[in-house]
Design a protein around this nucleic acid. Structure first.
Lengths: 247, 247
DNA sequence: TCAAAAGTGTTATAGGTACACCCATGT
DNA sequence: ACATGGGTGTACCTATAACACTTTTGA
């Protein structure tokens, strides 16, 4: 869809905006920064890139990019994820927009932060055109980050902890058929607390969108665990009523 | 702080960005739209303006404006609130950023939505340079709105309902000394449900940041109600522990 | 038969729900 | 004395936490 920029500016100029020429308003850019959390066996990590260009050359940073003029914000987030991981079916969730005037040394750039949660093991991070290196970092050992990315990361960790209680953001991290122990460990890792096995299972059994299957683990050297699967249709009804886990 | 635009563009151009000239990225603008909720005696309203210029001339819309090149997002939200209501000490909370490519007919403009909650009675909405008229609208009778403002409003209502449980966003809506009945009615109105008086009070009394005073209502034709006040210092400790009301 | 993890059952306590009832004031 | 809302108490029931115990498998 072509934008008639001339018409637009002529019209908006009528408003005058305290005498700042309208052109000054149309010199900004926006970027999307992605906080991609990777989970595998009780370990939670985040994907960082090492910047290959100024500003902040060689600093570690969140993967992000300017949004194309014809690109929706959500699409930009998906593109960045896909560039780095080749994953394309992961829902990304918008968290917050950071817009301090001086946050970017090269101009007025506000950035919209997104989060995603993926299975660490499935992914070999790809090099990208803006990154020297791409690497998983434990959340306990985060290096100094470029821009205001430390602040963004902190916000996003909080948001991950909240979202995991109310949205099935965790489905891409577990196999289609999973054990309740794996499910419990996932929540314990993200929320940084422990649950009593028995009480945790009681709660799960009260929730209809986690369906017990007639199938068990095989070749384990202990009593095989019954497998469960996520029923997204059943979940919709829960969501409509404002469901949140109450662990 | 002056920005060296020339340097910035020269540098970023090295990255090439799939051969789209960097200038194209710096032709966007962003706006802030404010959803100002007004509460008074069991009534929840929202402040809308009637647009005085194209696009969407004469349509009702959320008050909003482009963000100045040297203005922080939060400050822009405060400015808009202040223009319309003369209020300046109301905290505004960022909710979500809306960025569909075609959402603004005159160019690429993404908008960041903010909410605030104010006492309806205190305010005579002021005319502003972008509004023909400014008026409180009941949430039950919202006219057709400009742009994607209906979607924004819906999101913000949900967010108001969530935020009121975890943040003292309601303090500006009650007098400094208030009755528990007034407090209960406020929550009932915002959350659209009713509470049992006795049980509601038991919960309040378990919460230390709502302090009972040695003072009562005067000149009421029924048993005078004891007054309470909000202790923001005590609240900080609750907040640090992730407090939310569990009504 | 042993180790390891799955899975179930029990009990004491806390907290929620739904009421009924009493209280203080102005008219 | 009565209307009006403020304020309290109780009894039932359900949810929760902490813990012990039983079960099933491979080695």
């Amino acid at each position: 869809m072509p934008i008639s920029r001339k018409v637009s500016k002529a019209r908006i100029e009528q408003d005058d905006f305290y005498s700042i020429p309208i052109d000054e308003f149309f010199k900004s850019a926006f970027s999307v920064d992605c906080v991609i959390f990777g989970y595998h066996e009780k370990e939670l990590k985040v994907l960082l890139i090492q910047r290959g260009t100024d500003p902040y050359e060689n600093f570690w940073a969140l993967p992000g990019d300017l949004v194309y003029p014809f690109e929706d914000l959500d699409d930009a987030a998906k593109r960045i994820l896909n560039d780095l991981t080749s994953l394309s079916d992961i829902p990304m969730r918008q968290v917050h927009t950071f817009g301090k005037v001086n946050r970017h040394p090269l101009g007025r750039v506000i950035t919209i932060a997104y989060i995603a949660l993926v299975e660490l093991q499935d992914i070999t991070p790809l090099p990208s055109n803006w990154a020297k290196e791409t690497k998983w970092h434990s959340l306990k050992k985060i290096p100094k980050l470029a821009f205001d990315h430390k602040e963004i990361l902190n916000e996003c960790v909080k948001e991950l902890q909240e979202k995991v209680m109310s949205e099935p953001i965790w489905t891409k991290v577990l196999p289609e058929k999973f054990t309740l122990t794996a499910f419990q460990e996932l929540f314990e890792t993200i929320l940084q607390r422990e649950f009593d096995k028995g009480n945790f299972r009681k709660k799960i059994n009260g929730v209809k969108f986690l369906k017990r299957l007639d199938e068990s683990q095989k070749n384990v050297r202990h009593r095989p665990s019954v497998l469960y699967k996520f029923d997204s249709k059943a979940f919709q009804q829960y969501k409509a009523k404002g469901f949140v886990f109450d662990f």
